[in-house]
């Protein structure tokens, strides 16, 4: 498989543990419960390495599920999703790379930029109590939730071939309170 990962600073160090999986996006788009299934699988596979195993499992699954739901909303049908999980000394890194639907790509990167600046309390509350969701929905609420309630850092990098890689970093302090 070709390497789709960008090479930012944290990835230069060898991970303590790594897991890489590739799936057709359509598998998830036709059966959304696969997101939950995969999030739980990754969490259970990884959590044994943490002292507070149940806590780590629950948080990894919660965060991974939102990332996967976002990716499935965004991805072009018939494209593939590549998921990469790495454990580093300071925490756990989750990456998903995908080919976004053209009408969502710009909105997505702009949204992540806003999110990186600040998880506005008021904006989050508005999303939570919105009676209807907007037409261009790609799980903004899920990303806001994990940024708001968990100490998760979210960044995004554009790759070759118009793919986007989104990276989450969950620090150890979150997984071992």
């Amino acid at each position: 498989m070709q390497s789709l990962r960008p090479q930012p600073q944290s990835s230069r160090m060898s991970p303590l543990f790594a897991l890489k999986l590739t799936f057709p996006a359509q598998d998830f788009q036709t059966n959304w419960t696969q997101c939950s299934l995969l999030a739980n699988y990754m969490a259970e596979y990884t959590a044994y390495q943490f002292t507070q195993q149940e806590r780590a499992e629950n948080i990894i699954s919660t965060v991974a599920n939102e990332l996967l739901e976002t990716a499935v909303h965004l991805a072009t049908p018939h494209s593939d999703l590549t998921l990469h999980l790495e454990q580093h000394a300071a925490g756990l890194q989750l990456e998903v790379s995908l080919l976004p639907q053209p009408d969502l790509a710009t909105a997505y990167t702009a949204f992540l930029q806003d999110l990186a600046d600040d998880v506005g309390e008021q904006a989050y509350m508005q999303w939570l109590t919105a009676v209807t969701i907007p037409p261009h929905y790609f799980n903004q609420l899920g990303l806001m939730m994990i940024a708001h309630d968990f100490s998760v850092r979210i960044t995004s990098v554009s790759l070759a071939s118009e793919r986007i890689c989104t990276r989450l970093f969950i620090p150890n302090e979150e997984l071992q309170a």
Binding site: S36, N40, N58, S61, T62, N65, E66, E69, W127, L128, T129, A130, V131, N139, L141, G142, M144, M145
Partner: peptide
């Protein structure tokens, strides 16, 4: 309740509202 997603939290929020 072992897990929840953001959509689940939104449903609860709508109820509280």
């Amino acid at each position: 309740l072992r897990y929840i997603n953001a959509a689940g939290v939104r449903a609860l929020s709508l109820f509280i509202d």
